[in-house]
């Protein structure tokens, strides 16, 4: 029924929303949506892990580890993500060996999608390190002192007091960063990863419906972000401490 409506719309108004009635275009679009979601989910998880690892190293006793973390954070925060992605995909990839693709040819060890995930995880991870540390620093020293006076060890304090509080404190900033990550995945277009933007561009260059596809694309991304905002909002709510907000 939806397909019929959009087909009629194309015939009568000349508005060609091919993704809604053309099975081929629809398939491509959905594959793009799937790839984007896949990159998002893996990169979000990896960036969170990187953030935790970074904040742990930044708090370690090793001077070298601290300097490395600082360097990592500053590098990825203050250079363009697109150039980072190009650097990985075009430059670093040349250093890696190729593997046999099973058909007598050679294919790169890491695919474009793989590089996109690596680059975006490193990019978002750098921000996560800062966010987590700000959260930990925001836990009042007096609360930590209270825990100490009750005989908690450093580790116990972190597990039972500091991290649960720090996590709640940094959740809003974390949400922002993860939303930003979803938007950043469009850059994978530049290295030919068949994600949503790439799929849409293929469709509009073959079906000649730039205007319609562009709007579909924008709305899709805004919806994607809205879903994430909604999920994180719900999560924030369940994590809320009574009496926490004013």
């Amino acid at each position: 029924m939806i397909a019929a409506y959009f087909e009629r719309l194309n015939e009568t108004q000349g508005l060609n929303f091919s993704v809604f009635y053309d099975a081929f275009d629809q398939g491509r679009f959905l594959t793009g949506l799937w790839t984007t979601s896949y990159i998002c989910v893996v990169a979000i998880i990896a960036s969170l892990a990187l953030g935790l690892l970074g904040v742990w190293l930044a708090g370690s006793n090793s001077r070298l580890a601290r300097i490395l973390v600082r360097g990592y954070v500053q590098f990825f925060r203050n250079t363009p993500p697109l150039v980072q992605l190009s650097f990985f995909y075009f430059a670093v990839a040349t250093l890696l060996p190729t593997v046999s693709d099973g058909f007598g040819g050679r294919s790169p060890l890491v695919s474009g999608t793989g590089w996109a995930i690596i680059a975006f995880s490193l990019f978002a991870g750098a921000f996560n390190v800062e966010i987590f540390r700000a959260g930990i620093e925001a836990v009042p020293s007096t609360t930590v002192e209270a825990g100490e006076s009750l005989g908690y060890t450093r580790l116990q304090l972190y597990i039972h007091v500091v991290l649960p509080l720090a996590f709640r404190i940094c959740l809003p900033a974390l949400n922002n960063n993860l939303i930003n990550l979803v938007k950043t995945t469009t850059l994978a277009y530049a290295i030919g990863v068949p994600e949503l933007l790439y799929a849409a561009s293929q469709i509009w260059s073959e079906s000649f419906n730039v205007r319609e596809m562009m709007n579909v694309l924008l709305v899709t991304y805004v919806l994607l972000v809205a879903v994430l905002v909604f999920v994180m909002g719900r999560w924030e709510k369940t994590m809320r401490i009574p009496g926490y907000s004013t």
Binding site: T142, T143, S149, G151, L165, I241
Partner: peptide
């Protein structure tokens, strides 16, 4: 030591969560 000595602070310092 801390098992033997309890301390109560001006700002209560309860664990808010």
């Amino acid at each position: 030591l801390r098992r033997d000595v309890g301390i109560v602070f001006q700002q209560y310092n309860l664990f808010p969560h």
